[in-house]
Amino acid sequence: MRHYCRLAALALGLATCGARAADSSPLKIEQAWVRAAPPSVTDTAAFMRIMNTGDTAVQLTGGETPIAGMAMPMATTRKMVNGVEVLGMKGVDSIEVPPHGETVLKPGGNHLMLMNLSAHPRPGDTVPVTLYFEPGHQKLTVQMTARVDG
């Protein structure tokens, strides 16, 4: 019986620890949304404002969602070719959120690309997206609404 009590206390302690860890997470996600996509496309993108109240920089390294095969941080590139502005994107290992600062992923800019879609979000759908952060292997699940525009 005492054994069980100790186990229960341990379990309770761990659970409390977990909750406290989540509560004290320096990260906060706001205005998160997913671009609604027509059935013909293979990829879409997630956008959000990531705030970091901590003293150290945090990296968004990727994520997962039931509607896509993978989620990858992408940077929008801009370059001039013979006086013409050319836009593109390239996969990056991570997107940094500075300490006591924020990073905004927005249309036309950096984003979390949801690739190899297995389902195509329609406007108004809710899509759960779990975001991966380093250091500390943090995972944060955010319910994102699907919209056509920002």
Partner: peptide
Amino acid sequence: YGAYYEAVMQDSQVAGNYYTVNHSAY
């Protein structure tokens, strides 16, 4: 119209011969 585009292969970790296209967006 002075538009520019070029196909770009993405990182090999992405499945198969996936490419995107850098393009002017005027």
